[in-house]
């Protein structure tokens, strides 16, 4: 494998790992190990949630560096698992360029769950969280319906590349207004547990926890980036939810 090919595959794997929501140290570690197992020296990897920079020298050649910019991130733990296995295999068996490419292609064509299932699972998650926070059956059904529709809205907005802040404003607005509507129409007695249950699919609790983990682990920049991201998402939901709540307040709710 040539140095160019090595940096290409290692960056490719690192980039995918970061996109499917791997921790910063895992991304850095994966690239480092792959490069090391092909006898690269002076390996330096720097990863933050939006960028990866890798640099190494090999066989007394001039140092080689590459930068990757990451625009879109989501949580895809199945993909993370597969990439992790691939990474281990590369380090252990020193696969050649063509077979790594083939394995990556196999991971690509290996599709996830069908959309309808993801949609129902989102609704189901919201419904069970509504139960968990003390809601009854009717509240849970309301959350399920709300979140199934919300999932389609988010999917559409992602499709037309709307920014994250706006998506969360719309999400917060939608959840708060449907909950208040159900409350006003007398379908549900209390709206709090329905709002909390539904909003669990939007709130950045996991991002906030991961941000603090990164900060403790010493990846200060990555931690601050995630922290800011969490704040932005929370602000978006708050702004969205504020509108129906204040209207309800004005109308004497």
């Amino acid at each position: 494998m040539t140095s160019t090919e090595l940096i290409e595959v290692s960056m490719n794997i690192g980039q995918r790992l970061l996109q499917c929501g791997a921790e910063t140290y895992r991304v850095e570690d994966a690239i480092f190990r792959i490069c090391k197992s092909y006898d690269a020296t002076e390996i330096n990897v720097y990863a933050v949630p939006t960028t990866i920079i890798t640099s190494f020298t090999r066989n007394n050649e001039a140092p080689i560096t590459r930068v990757a910019r990451i625009h879109k991130r989501s949580t895809n733990l199945g993909l993370l698992d597969q990439l992790n296995t691939l990474c281990r295999d590369i380090c252990r068996e020193k696969l050649d360029y063509a077979s790594i490419k083939e394995r990556l292609h196999l991971i690509d064509v290996h599709t996830g769950y069908p959309k309808i299932m993801l949609c129902l699972a989102t609704g189901g998650g919201a419904a069970f969280f509504t139960f968990l926070f003390g809601g009854g059956v009717i509240e849970a059904i309301c959350s399920l319906t709300t979140c199934v529709i919300l999932w389609y809205m988010i999917e559409y907005m992602n499709h037309i590349r709307t920014n994250t802040l706006f998506i969360n404003i719309v999400g917060g607005f939608w959840i708060a207004s449907t909950a208040l509507l159900c409350y006003k129409l007398g379908i549900i007695k209390v709206y709090e547990n329905m709002v909390i249950g539904s909003i669990m699919i939007l709130v950045p609790g996991l991002v906030l926890t991961n941000a603090i983990r990164d900060l403790i682990a010493g990846d200060i920049v990555a931690g601050i980036t995630k922290f800011t991201e969490a704040l932005l998402v929370a602000a978006g939901i708050a702004v969205g939810a504020a509108v129906p709540f204040s209207f309800a307040g004005l109308l004497g709710g």
Binding site: T75, N76, D81, Y113, A121, F129
Partner: peptide, 16 residues
């Protein structure tokens, strides 16, 4: 309820 909610989210996060 927490168990079922987590199962739903496992599907959302593409766990196999």
């Amino acid at each position: 309820m927490s168990f079922f909610a987590c199962i739903c989210f496992a599907v959302v996060f593409q766990v196999k």
